[in-house]
C-alpha cells in the first residue's frame, strides 16, 4: 500500500514537472521576444537579434577625495561627457550570445580664469572651450550559460568582452594648449571576464556577479605638444548584486549595487599609488511594450575614494527581431 502511494506520488510529481516543462516549451518565439528584463531567458534564443541604442550623460562637479570625503570641485571647470551606443546582441545558440557595441562619444570641457597683475594695474579674463567627438572604443564579446537555465530559473553565465582602442586616443588639431580637439578613446586593449549567477522567482529577480578587467596599456599623449608616454591603467575588479522586481506585467524596477576597485595606474614607468574605489547604486526603470524595451537609470556614487561623485544618466531603447 505504501509502495502504491509512493508510486502515485512519483507519477504525480513527474506529471507536474512535465506540465511545467510544457509550459516552458509552449512559449512561442513571439512570446519569448516579448519577455521582460526579468522574465527573459539568461541569453537570447538561437537566431534572435536584439538591437539597442543607448544614451548616457555625466558631468564633473563633485569628487571623493583621498579621505573618501565628497567635495565640490573647487576650480571653475565644467566638463560633460555624452555617450551614444549602438549595441547588437545575437543568439548563436540557446546558450551562447554574441555582443557588439559601437560607441560614439562626445566630450566637452570649458574653463576660465582672471589674471591680475597689480604692478601694471591690469586684469584680464581668459576663457576657452575644448571639445571632441567621434567613434569610441568598440567592444566585442559573448555570454555563455555555463549552468543552463533550469525550471527553477537559475543560471550561471560566463561572459568575456574585449574592448579595442578604436577611438582617437591623442589630442588632434593642436593650435595651442587651449585650442585643440579632445581625444575620445582610452588607447588600450581591455579584456573583461565576468561570472554571473541569476535566479528568477517571478515577479522577483536576483543576481550576483564578479568581473575583472585586464588592461594592457599603450602609448598616448598626456600633455598637449609633448611626446606620447607609455601607460597602463589599473585593472578593475567589479562586484555586483541586483534585486529586480515587476511593478506590473510591463514595468519593472531594477536595483543594482556595484563595488569597483581600481588597480594602480602606471605612467612612464612610474606607479600612481593612489587608492581608488567606489560604491554605486543604480536604480533602473524598465518598460516593456511588446518587443520594444525602454530602460532608464541613474547611477549614484554613494561612497568612494579618488573618484568622481557625480551621477550618470542612461537611457536605453532595445528592439528584438
Amino acid at each position: 500500500m505504501a509502495c502504491l502511494r509512493l508510486y502515485i506520488l512519483l507519477i504525480g510529481l513527474i506529471a507536474f514537472s512535465s506540465l511545467s516543462a510544457q509550459v516552458q516549451e509552449e512559449l512561442t518565439p513571439l512570446a519569448l521576444k516579448q519577455t521582460t528584463i526579468i522574465t527573459e531567458p539568461a541569453t537570447l534564443k538561437k537566431g534572435f537579434l536584439r538591437l539597442g541604442a543607448a544614451f548616457s550623460f555625466s558631468a564633473i562637479d563633485k569628487f571623493f577625495d583621498d579621505n573618501a570625503e565628497k567635495r565640490f570641485l573647487p576650480e571653475n571647470v565644467w566638463a560633460r561627457s555624452s555617450l551614444y551606443i549602438l549595441a547588437l546582441q545575437y543568439g548563436l545558440s540557446d546558450r551562447l550570445q554574441a555582443l557588439v557595441t559601437i560607441p560614439f562619444r562626445g566630450e566637452f570641457v570649458s574653463q576660465s580664469f582672471t589674471l591680475e597683475i597689480p604692478s601694471s594695474n591690469t586684469m584680464t579674463v581668459t576663457s576657452w572651450e575644448l571639445s571632441g567627438s567621434g567613434l569610441g572604443d568598440m567592444e566585442f564579446g559573448f555570454s555563455y550559460q555555463l549552468v543552463p537555465e533550469n525550471f527553477a530559473r537559475r543560471a550561471v553565465l560566463f561572459s568575456s568582452f574585449l574592448t579595442l582602442p578604436t577611438g582617437r586616443k591623442d589630442p588632434t588639431d593642436i593650435v595651442d594648449e587651449t585650442n585643440y580637439t579632445l581625444p575620445i578613446g582610452n588607447g588600450e586593449v581591455i579584456w573583461e571576464f565576468e561570472l554571473l549567477w541569476r535566479r528568477v522567482n517571478y515577479p522577483y529577480f536576483y543576481s550576483f556577479a564578479v568581473s575583472y578587467d585586464f588592461k594592457f596599456g599603450g602609448n598616448k599623449v598626456f600633455d598637449v605638444g609633448e611626446d606620447p608616454l607609455p601607460f597602463q591603467s589599473g585593472s578593475l575588479l567589479t562586484l555586483n548584486g541586483a534585486y529586480n522586481f515587476h511593478l506590473n506585467d510591463w514595468l519593472a524596477v531594477q536595483n543594482d549595487m556595484f563595488y569597483f576597485s581600481f588597480g594602480q595606474d602606471e605612467l612612464n614607468g612610474q606607479t600612481n599609488d593612489e587608492q581608488r574605489w567606489s560604491v554605486q547604486y543604480v536604480p533602473r526603470l524598465s518598460i516593456q511594450a511588446k518587443r520594444l524595451r525602454i530602460n532608464q537609470s541613474v547611477g549614484f556614487v554613494l561612497l568612494g575614494r579618488n573618484v568622481s561623485a557625480d551621477p550618470t544618466y542612461t537611457a536605453i531603447v532595445q528592439y528584438i527581431f
Binding site: 562637479d61 563633485k62 565640490f72 570641485l73 573647487p74 580664469f113 582672471t114 591680475e116 597689480p118 579674463v125
Partner: peptide
C-alpha cells in the same frame, strides 16, 4: 555648489 571664476594674481 556654485563656483566662482578662478583668479590668478601675479
Amino acid at each position: 555648489g556654485q563656483r566662482e571664476r578662478s583668479t590668478t594674481i601675479i
